[in-house]
């Protein structure tokens, strides 16, 4: 396919160089501040070019390496299982909703959409997860709550199926005697790699960045996930410096890790996703061209 001429290409590249700088600089700031000497941060703020480099923050994390590795493991397991299962459930729900001939299409879409607006709040959700189903302090508690999260991805996937897959393909396959599931598995999914990659990536990020489920459902420190370890510290610092807790507040605050450590934890939390990302990008090509199937 013809693309734009090279001058336009250059302009677009320049645009992206600027955009990338805007996105990368704060991240570099994060990385450098995690290796800046603690007092230097407090005296001069963050800097891209620290005068004194110190790996104390990472050494501190190594101190508790087993806890961090375990948290990585929990996050990893929850992310892999959660993302795969949720992709399956989401697409299986979204596909029938995308079919214009599916009888309950509109009302079911509404049924899905409604969950995006109303939720009962934390208390009943907690009740269901801990009392009706005994998920407290299990790995499942890190997986199940985010499987569909809410209807967002279902409706997104539905829109993609409806707009990228011509009804004729489905009809002709049906006439050729293919079953619905076979059509879904053999034709629809391969044609929808970009949206699968999109939803998969989003769910991956949701699972990877999740700390709330760990906060709410996990008290066993063996099951904490990675982002919880970081967020617990961040939230505690905020809470302790904005609450009135009397004479022992100084000790409580002193017990919390320093700024460099927080930055280091943020860094080690982001890196794995960056590594996983290119994997998803591979699917941002049109799976099979629709034309090929039609032909």
């Amino acid at each position: 396919m013809e693309r734009t001429n090279s001058r336009t290409q250059l302009v677009i590249h320049l645009f992206f160089v600027v955009v990338s700088a805007v996105c990368l600089l704060p991240f570099f700031l994060l990385v450098t501040s995690s290796i800046t000497d603690e007092s230097e941060i407090i005296r001069n703020g963050y800097t891209l070019f620290p005068k004194h480099i110190s790996f104390a923050a990472y050494e501190y994390l190594l101190n508790d390496a087993s806890a961090i590795l375990r948290a990585y493991g929990n996050t990893f397991v929850a992310t892999v299982i959660g993302t795969s299962v949720s992709l399956l459930i989401i697409t299986m729900l979204a596909y029938p909703l995308s079919r214009r001939d599916f009888p309950w299409r509109k009302s079911l879409s509404f049924f899905v959409f409604f969950t995006m607006l109303f939720n009962g709040g934390l208390v009943p959700t907690y009740f269901v997860y801990t009392q009706v189903f005994d998920l407290k302090n299990t790995l499942l508690a890190l997986i199940v709550p985010y499987l569909l999260l809410n209807g967002f991805y279902v409706l997104l996937a539905r829109t993609f199926f409806a707009n990228t897959i011509p009804m004729e393909i489905i009809e002709s396959a049906y006439i050729d005697g293919a079953g619905e599931f076979r059509i879904f598995w053999r034709i629809i999914l391969p044609l929808s790699l970009p949206i699968l990659a999109t939803v998969g990536l989003f769910q991956l990020i949701n699972y990877w960045n999740d700390w709330f489920n760990s906060l709410i459902f996990i008290t066993d420190r063996k099951l904490f996930n990675l982002q919880y370890l970081l967020n617990k510290i961040l939230l505690d610092i905020q809470f302790l410096s904005t609450s009135d807790l009397g004479g022992n507040q100084a000790e409580m605050i002193a017990a919390l890790p320093k700024e460099g450590v927080r930055m280091a934890m943020a860094v080690i939390g982001v890196v794995p996703i960056l590594i996983a990302y290119p994997f998803f990008q591979r699917f941002f090509i049109q799976g099979l061209t629709v034309g090929a199937v039609k032909g």
């Binding site: 906060l215 709410i216 617990k232 505690d236 609450s243």
Partner: peptide
């Protein structure tokens, strides 16, 4: 013993 973070 059930320790919780102050914030939560």
């Amino acid at each position: 013993l059930m320790p919780y973070s102050y914030a939560s």
